[in-house]
Structures are given as structure tokens and as C-alpha cells.
Amino acid sequence: MSSDVRYGVADSVGSLLAAIAHSISEALRIMSFSDKQLWGMDEHEHQRALEEVLDEARKDFQEMGPLVNGDIYYENDRTHDSLQELCLLRDRFQAHALSLREWSRSGGPIDPVWTRDTHRLQRDLHRAQCRAASRIFTSGQEGSARCLGAFLVYRKQRVWSNRQAAGVEEGEYQKRYLEELRTCNRIGTFQRFGEADIAFVCDYCDGHLLWDDLDKMPSVRTAQETVLWPTTPISPSTGDPQWQATGFSHSKHEEKQVVFAPVAIANHTSPHPGDWRARLLCPFCEDEAAVPRDKDDEEDRWRPEATFDDIAAFEEHLLWQHTTQKSSIASTGNCAVM
């Protein structure tokens, strides 16, 4: 981000978002007063794009406050990085409204490139709001913790896991499974990374999770025994976590086991400053560490490893510490299949 972006001492996340909303509304007002008899497809498409930006910005604003213990914390936040990012976006939206004003005065068809730019602004504004909320969330955590996006997926999984022992009908499993996947898609995006890899980019921390040499991202867990679809997060016969999914390599289109995407997404943390890769926590080690100690146990409380640097390290840990299928899977000769 440019270092020459400035904001005033009275600016906050709320005030900058209000200024952005004003620019979008002004752009729509300019278009509403133009001669629609001269409009073509590009003009109508651009108006729809502006309406979508405003609608999503309002929706995001309403959703972020409750995630960080109330609207007042979100609106009044003055975290430097958040203000820098939103100030730059405010200037971009103001420039866009000014361009529309000049277009309305000079006449002629609208530049179709502006619609593409508007969609880009919409995406950037959405991610800026997510990151602003995530910074507030992270500041309230002790030590290394999941980013807000990861926490939203993790929370869904915990509800599922905590009620599994009570018995859940197949239809309820399917419903929760789809909710888990939808939550993943709401907090970030999957995209091709290079020619062979697949990355998930989190909107809340901008961290990247990278699966190496993967043709398509598997959408279901790998069943370790005969079970009803969808496969549950915990094996009903052994009690072991089912964290794997079956995919195919991009290079040879051979079957390979990978970390199921929601497992990784729900347990990532923000990248180190200057890095782009998200780190990962092991939820199964966390659960084991949380088990009450025996009163006669005088040893220091066991603590899980803090974080893993990438998917490959995370998978190797899961392979050797949290599966009963070590021998068959290890025979592939490649622990870090991600």
C-alpha cells in the first residue's frame, strides 16, 4: 500500500466506510439523472454493478460488528492498517464518482472498462472490511490464534463435532456438511496457483493455503470404512479424526490423499509480517491438550506444537499423529503430498 496515503485524526473505520458509501450513492445519483434514452447495455450493466457494490458493502457492515463484540468496536476502530486501506479505497471511489460526473457532462457512451473496475473495487472493499474486523478480533486473542475467517469455519465444525456423539440423522449430517463448505467459500476463494497447484486465499487475513500438484479440490472426506454419506469428521468405529480427502494429481492424474480443505481452512492463522503463506494449528492436538490432567500427574502440562508453516508440514503431522492408516499411506513414499 502506498505510504503517502493520509487520514485525519477523527477518521475511523466507520467514518471512512460512510465516505465510501456516499461516493457510491453519488455515482448512482449521477447516473440516475443522465439521459437513459441514450443508454446501451454498458450503462445498464454499470448501474447494476454500482448497486451491487452498495448492497454488499451494507451487508458486510451489518455482519462485521457482531463478529467483534458489537458495532461500536467496529465503527470506532482506528487500527493504522485498516485506516490506510480504507482511506485508499475512499480515494478510489471518489475518483470513480468524479469520472462519472465528467462522463455525464461530456455525453457519449460509458467506458465499459469502468464496470470491470467497479467489480474490482467491490472485491477490494469486501476484503478491506473483512481484514478490518479480523484485526480487531486478533487483537483480543492471547498469543497465536486463528484469524477471524478460520474461526468462523472452526465454530461450525465444533457445533457438528460436539453433537455427533448424541446421534445425528443422515439428512442433518448433509445439511451441516454443506454449511461448512458454504462458510469456507464465504471467507475466501479457491484459485489455481501456477499450473499445477491450488490455493485458498482468506479474505480476513490474506493468508494463502497451498495444495501442491492437485487437479481439483476434493469436496468430501475420504471414508475409512463403510459409512453413510457424507463421511463424518470423526470415525464412528475408531474415534479417529477423518481429515483426509481423495484427489488426483495434476501432473499424472494419479489418486492422492490430501488434507480436506475445510480442516485446513478452519485452523489457519495469519501469515507472519512480510509473508504470504498462512500458518496452521492442529485442532486434534488442541483437544488432547485440553483434556483434564490426572491429579497425581506432576509433569508439566503438555502443549501442542504452536503452528505449522504450510500444508505440507501440517499434513505430515496429521499423517503420523492422527491416523490409524499410517502404514498404508506411508507406503506412497511421500508424506508431504500436498
Rank of each mutant, 00 (worst) to 15 (best):
L125M: 08
D111S: 02
A95L: 13
H96Q: 01
R135K: 04
D81E: 15
L88A: 15
Q141G: 01
G140W: 10
D81L: 03
I110T: 07
E102N: 13
V113T: 15
L125H: 10
A132Y: 08
S134A: 10
A132M: 07
G143F: 04
D117I: 00
T79P: 09
H80I: 12
S106I: 05
G107N: 10
E85I: 12
R123I: 07
Q84I: 11
D91W: 05
L88T: 00
W103A: 04
P109I: 10
I110Q: 04
W103K: 12
G149C: 00
R101C: 09
L98R: 04
S99W: 00
Q122G: 12
A128H: 12
Q129T: 02
A97C: 04
S144M: 07
L88C: 11
L125A: 06
C130M: 07
S104K: 04
R78T: 15
C87R: 04
T138A: 10
A132R: 07
A145K: 08
G140K: 09
H80C: 08
W103Q: 14
R123Y: 08
L88Y: 14
L100V: 13
R90Q: 14
P109A: 12
L88H: 13
C130L: 12
V113S: 13
S104N: 12
Q94K: 15
Q84F: 07
F93M: 02
L125W: 02
R127Q: 11
L98F: 13
Q94N: 13
C130G: 13
R123G: 10
D124W: 15
E102K: 11
S144C: 11
L98G: 14
F93H: 05
R101A: 14
S104E: 05
L148E: 03
L83I: 03
G140R: 10
A97Y: 15
A97I: 12
L125E: 05
R120G: 09
A97E: 00
R131Y: 03
R135S: 06
A97N: 00
C87F: 05
R105Y: 12
Q94C: 02
S99V: 14
R135W: 00
W103I: 05
D111I: 13
I110K: 00
T115S: 08
R116L: 03
R78H: 03
L89F: 01
E85S: 15
Q141I: 01
I136G: 01
S104Q: 04
L125C: 00
E85Y: 12
G108F: 10
A128Y: 09
